[in-house]
């Protein structure tokens, strides 16, 4: 160890293959997008691709994408928190928790095209639940209240929750475990109500974890492509769908615009990640 510089500088050499691989297939593609976003078709430098993103239809796509991601992140976080808390409370049987985490593991990973099809078969126009309600209860959920259609923004959000809630459950369950029972006992010994416990102890302790989870969920929904692709076929113009449409053929004639859109996604997610890292640090403070 003490024998100085030379040995130390060679010690990382066996990790070289890994870094070369990461360079070739992670940094090179990511870097080429950042550069490509600022090039024009003749190879010169330009900011026009990126400024075009603030015009329609791109501006709308970013707004819709961010709205869908934020809505499903916040809703997913709240519902996931409520369900996870219900499952890990002292009086809930233990098997419920184990079933819930197992199922969450599957559902958080079950996305894409099959998820869209499952919802089409359930609450699509000819879906099992839709037809049951229409034929048996004379309740048409599309034509009357709540005017639900899978192929709209609300529909996409409804489907995204199917992977957002389980992800929240997986992420937040360990944090809820960290809410020690003694704190609850101590606060009730001091005369605090259940509401006061949550207001002054539970939520403040969980808050960094919850915020971190919301950011994770946001990124998760923001990156999603396949589910929206199968559901909306472009009716809801999310950014990944616009990028995809370019590669399917016929929409733009400037490939740098697609790269600029990808760059825009990268920027949004990078900002989110910058918010996430300090929150993650703070939330670890309470673990042990």
């Amino acid at each position: 160890m003490a024998s100085g510089r030379r040995r130390l500088s060679l010690a990382w050499l066996p990790t070289l293959p890994f870094f070369v691989y990461a360079f070739l297939f992670l940094f090179l593609p990511a870097g080429s997008i950042i550069i490509g976003a600022f090039k024009d078709v003749d190879g010169g430098w330009t900011t026009s691709n990126v400024t075009t993103l603030f015009d329609q239809p791109y501006r709308r796509a970013y707004i819709e994408s961010i709205e869908v991601s934020a809505t499903t992140a916040v809703l997913g976080a709240l519902l996931g928190l409520a369900i996870a808390y219900a499952a890990v409370r002292e009086h809930t049987p233990r098997w419920i928790r184990s079933v819930l985490t197992t199922f969450s593991g599957v559902a958080a990973n079950f996305g894409g095209i099959p998820l869209a099809f499952a919802f089409i078969a359930t609450v699509g126009t000819l879906g099992v639940v839709t037809t049951f309600l229409r034929n048996q209860l004379h309740w048409d959920i599309g034509a009357s209240w709540p005017h639900f259609s899978l192929f709209t923004k609300n529909g996409v959000e409804f489907v995204y929750l199917y992977f957002q809630i389980p992800l929240m459950i997986l992420v937040i369950a360990p944090a809820i475990d960290g809410l020690r029972r003694e704190w609850r006992e101590a606060s009730s010994n001091l005369g605090a109500s259940s509401f006061q416990f949550w207001r002054y102890v539970g939520v403040p302790v969980l808050m960094p974890s919850i915020l971190g989870a919301v950011i994770l969920l946001f990124g998760n929904a923001f990156a999603a492509y396949a589910t929206a692709y199968a559901l909306t076929s472009g009716v809801v113009p999310l950014v990944p769908l616009l990028i995809g449409a370019y590669y399917q053929g016929n929409v733009l004639d400037n490939p740098h615009l697609a790269q600029a859109m990808a760059f825009g996604m990268f920027v949004v997610l990078a900002v989110m990640m910058l918010l996430y890292i300090p929150l993650q640090r703070r939330s670890q403070r309470w673990a042990k």
Binding site: F25, L26, P29, S32, L216, G219, A223, I243, Q259, A262
Partner: peptide, 21 residues
């Protein structure tokens, strides 16, 4: 830290870069 980067570079962004390079 490298392991966090794929979260910032979603598949749709990655494929655009890969196809270009």
């Amino acid at each position: 830290f490298l392991a966090l980067i794929p979260f910032v570079v979603p598949p749709i962004v990655m494929v655009v870069g890969l196809l270009k390079v």
